[in-house]
Computed example of a mutant assay.
Amino acid sequence: MTGDEHSFRLTMIGYLRVSTEEQASSGLGLDAQRDTIQRYADGHGWDVVWYEDAGLSAKSLARPQLQAALTRLHTAPKRRDVDGIVVAKLDRLSRSVADFASVLELARSRKWALVAIDLGVDTSTPTGELVANVMMSVAQWERRVIGERTSAAMQAAKRQGRHMGRVSVLPEATGARLLALRTTRTLAATADVLNAEGLTTATGHHWTENSVCKVHRRLIAAQQQTAVLTA
């Protein structure tokens, strides 16, 4: 993205979220988030288009408006009409470091900016990129700790004569894209989009309805297992 493409003015997606409980008790509601983002955007000379999920938790990334925003950002850079996504607080986007890391990886791979105002994460700037790199390191550490716990649990299950499956090794960006597509598309349509975007299975094959179904189930199971291990 160059300044010439947008007349030196970026257009960012402002993402807002509150859960049902927060609507009743939190001081940082939709209006407050919007105000925080707008002031930040004004200070940086950005235009903002708004997406909001009201009454939804951040337990997963499977939220209608968030997925719509990510789909819009997934457009090829030269045809994209937005330059990134900004949130007032990181937990408006995700409460999971692993989920945040997957979104950050998507941002890097597709070359759009990710901004979390409260933490100073702004990948459109060198300092914000540094903060994001630190958070990615934390996410990597978290994955290793979870992996060690999972390995210990699998060994214990093996000793007890039980079997625990293993999730196929997919790039995080591919897994996140599959999950995003499955929120609004059929298995067959998801396979078609993944293939059209040049994304392959963990073994390098084209996607089929059956492979999408199997991997989707495994990814959901992995998310649930991670939630239990980190609780």
Results as ranks from 00 to 15, higher is better:
residue 225 Q to M: 12
residue 115 V to P: 00
residue 164 M to D: 05
residue 87 V to I: 10
residue 159 R to M: 11
residue 154 M to S: 09
residue 177 R to E: 12
residue 88 A to C: 04
residue 1 M to S: 14
residue 62 A to L: 15
residue 172 E to R: 15
residue 56 L to H: 08
residue 201 T to M: 14
residue 182 R to S: 04
residue 118 D to E: 06
residue 138 V to E: 12
residue 132 A to T: 03
residue 196 A to H: 07
residue 126 P to Q: 07
residue 149 R to V: 03
residue 176 A to P: 00
residue 218 R to F: 10
residue 39 R to F: 06
residue 23 Q to S: 09
residue 189 A to N: 04
residue 179 L to N: 08
residue 189 A to V: 01
residue 221 A to G: 13
residue 16 L to R: 01
residue 134 V to I: 15
residue 80 R to G: 03
residue 73 L to A: 03
residue 61 L to Y: 05
residue 211 S to T: 14
residue 66 L to I: 05
residue 7 S to Q: 13
residue 5 E to K: 13
residue 169 V to R: 14
residue 203 T to C: 15
residue 39 R to E: 09
residue 139 A to Y: 01
residue 215 V to F: 13
residue 131 V to P: 01
residue 34 R to S: 10
residue 230 T to Y: 03
residue 225 Q to P: 03
residue 34 R to I: 02
residue 6 H to E: 09
residue 48 V to W: 02
residue 160 Q to L: 15
residue 214 K to T: 06
residue 5 E to T: 01
residue 148 E to D: 12
residue 165 G to H: 06
residue 205 H to C: 13
residue 228 V to G: 06
residue 8 F to Q: 10
residue 149 R to K: 15
residue 54 A to C: 11
residue 111 K to F: 02
residue 211 S to W: 02
residue 53 D to M: 04
residue 92 R to F: 01
residue 113 A to L: 02
residue 161 G to P: 07
residue 215 V to D: 06
residue 52 E to H: 07
residue 30 L to V: 15
residue 64 P to N: 12
residue 102 S to I: 05
residue 221 A to M: 13
residue 27 G to E: 05
residue 91 D to G: 07
residue 223 Q to P: 06
residue 127 T to G: 14
residue 94 S to D: 08
residue 42 D to H: 04
residue 49 V to A: 13
residue 15 Y to N: 04
residue 130 L to G: 14
residue 81 D to I: 09
residue 214 K to P: 00
residue 103 V to L: 09
residue 202 A to F: 03
residue 231 A to C: 11
residue 160 Q to V: 00
residue 152 A to C: 05
residue 149 R to N: 13
residue 13 I to F: 07
residue 129 E to Q: 12
residue 39 R to S: 10
residue 137 S to Y: 05
residue 210 N to C: 12
residue 143 R to H: 10
residue 78 K to L: 12
residue 57 S to R: 08
residue 174 T to N: 09
residue 170 L to E: 06
residue 16 L to F: 04
residue 121 V to E: 00
residue 187 L to K: 13
residue 13 I to S: 06
residue 130 L to Y: 10
residue 116 A to R: 01
residue 175 G to T: 03
residue 170 L to W: 02
residue 141 W to H: 12
residue 133 N to L: 15
residue 228 V to N: 12
residue 156 A to P: 05
residue 223 Q to T: 14
residue 164 M to Y: 02
residue 64 P to F: 12
residue 103 V to T: 04
residue 165 G to L: 09
residue 112 W to M: 01
residue 184 T to H: 12
residue 41 A to P: 00
residue 174 T to I: 06
residue 201 T to G: 10
residue 160 Q to N: 12
residue 124 S to G: 14
residue 3 G to A: 14
residue 45 G to I: 08
residue 91 D to E: 06
residue 105 E to N: 11
residue 202 A to P: 08
residue 95 R to P: 03
residue 117 I to Y: 04
residue 221 A to E: 11
residue 27 G to Q: 10
residue 173 A to L: 13
residue 117 I to Q: 05
residue 65 Q to E: 14
residue 215 V to G: 05
residue 186 T to A: 12
residue 40 Y to R: 11
residue 179 L to C: 09
residue 120 G to A: 08
residue 96 S to W: 00
residue 177 R to D: 09
residue 71 T to I: 08
residue 154 M to D: 03
residue 106 L to W: 02
residue 188 A to Y: 08
residue 71 T to C: 07
residue 185 R to T: 05
residue 180 A to R: 11
residue 137 S to Q: 09
residue 155 Q to G: 02
residue 194 L to F: 00
residue 136 M to T: 11
residue 125 T to C: 11
residue 30 L to W: 02
residue 230 T to A: 14
residue 25 S to N: 08
residue 222 A to P: 01
residue 193 V to S: 10
